[in-house]
Amino acid sequence: MQLKNINKLIHALLIATAPLLPAALFSLPVLAKKEEGTYPEKVIRVIVPNGAGGSTDKVSRLFVRELNNKLPVGLAVINIKGGGTSKGAQKAARSKPDGYTLLSTHQALLTSSALKINRLGPESLTPIAQIAHETYVIAVSPDSPIRNLDDLFKASNEGVNGKRIRVGVNPGAANHFFFLKAILHTKADVVFVPSGGGAKTLKQILGGHLDTSIFAVSEVHQLIKSKKLHALAVFDTKTHDKLSGVSTARQQGHDIVIKLNYTMYAPAGTEQSRIKVIADALGEIVKQKSFVEDLQEQSINPDYKTGAALQQTIDKDYAEMKIIANHIKQKAQENAAKKKR
């Protein structure tokens, strides 16, 4: 390579790095609409611990879009994925508790903490507000002999045609915990297959390679409507608008409620007055008709909670997740011992 060419390359790199300046400005307070002395007065970073474009990211961006209109400053979404959301959650927890770094997540914070992937735990963050929830539904292939929850619990214990049932999950993720939550009381013995999340698991069920799994309503309502999937039960307190004819677990005599709660957090130690500013803004947002319609389009329902009520929900959820995590670890040890033998 000639010296002249190397010079040209350096020149090009300089040209290329020049635009980094405006790019970096995105995260600087210069762009903020200033209001001296009050909170907030500079750009707020909202960490989403999932990849850009995923369902959590999409929903989080809906909140952020509305917050942008409500607050006097801008908000920027930062996607930090990895470690079952623990990378982003830990990054938020370690940030300065000044209200300028927030976290938008759901029970993945609790599942990753219960499994000790997130070593800081939910106590490293202060919940600001729960904004919405997404209902879960268990589904099987239409030709499956499992037709309702009782059949599922029986099949979980005894298997189908002499074989243990195969359940598709994303190991350690919310759908794994949620399925276990549904069947834990049955002392079930099922095979968990690491088929991944939503669409990947669905493909395996429709192809006849898996027996069942648990899904967010948005992932399956169309397939259930077109009878390509059979829903066993909806895990909510009432039936879902998009799943007419599908009864709730309660209606079938089982008091199981499984919901993914979209919640915003701040690092522990953040001033309560600052938390209140965000919580109040979110409270106003969930009352907006257009916002509710945007959520419902994605089969998500507004469900606003804050303060002690929210903390209570999180504590209860976390206690359940810890029991399930112990069960997962115990099963893993049993399997490892079986393999050794």
């Binding site: 090009a12 040209i15 290329a16 020049a18 635009p19 980094l20 405006p22 790019a23 970096a24 995105f26 995260s27 850009a52 920027a76 979404v77 930062i78 996607n79």
Partner: peptide, 16 residues
């Protein structure tokens, strides 16, 4: 084009 590359790649995840 290089400018478009940098700004576009940065903007999706806000990540240097």
């Amino acid at each position: 084009l290089l400018l478009v590359c940098v700004v576009g790649t940065y903007a999706v995840n806000n990540s240097m």
